[in-house]
């Protein structure tokens, strides 16, 4: 039963989303480019972005 439910979710929901996202962009940045100078990502806008001190997220208390 669980496998059937997971199959429904996977093939009717995850698969179309996966196809669509791969059509529109490169969600896992799989493409390589000889012309690209660097693959580094600057984590801008995050709590631990350059110049900003990282902060803890209090999840429970």
């Amino acid at each position: 039963m669980a496998t059937l439910l997971l199959g429904v979710v996977y093939f009717l929901l995850a698969t179309p989303i996966g196809w669509l996202s791969r059509l529109l962009h490169d969600p896992l940045s799989r493409r390589r480019s000889r012309r690209t100078v660097s693959y580094w990502i600057v984590p801008a806008g995050r709590a631990d972005a350059p110049g900003e001190r990282s902060r803890a997220t209090r999840i429970t208390s």
């Binding site: 496998t3 997971l6 199959g7 996977y10 093939f11 995850a14 698969t15 989303i17 996966g18 196809w19 996202s21 791969r22 969600p27 896992l28």
Partner: peptide, 15 residues
């Protein structure tokens, strides 16, 4: 995101 990105070839892993 990884499992969706691999669909439809990764059902065993998804399960």
């Amino acid at each position: 995101a990884t499992l969706i990105g691999a669909a439809p070839t990764g059902f065993a892993s998804f399960r």
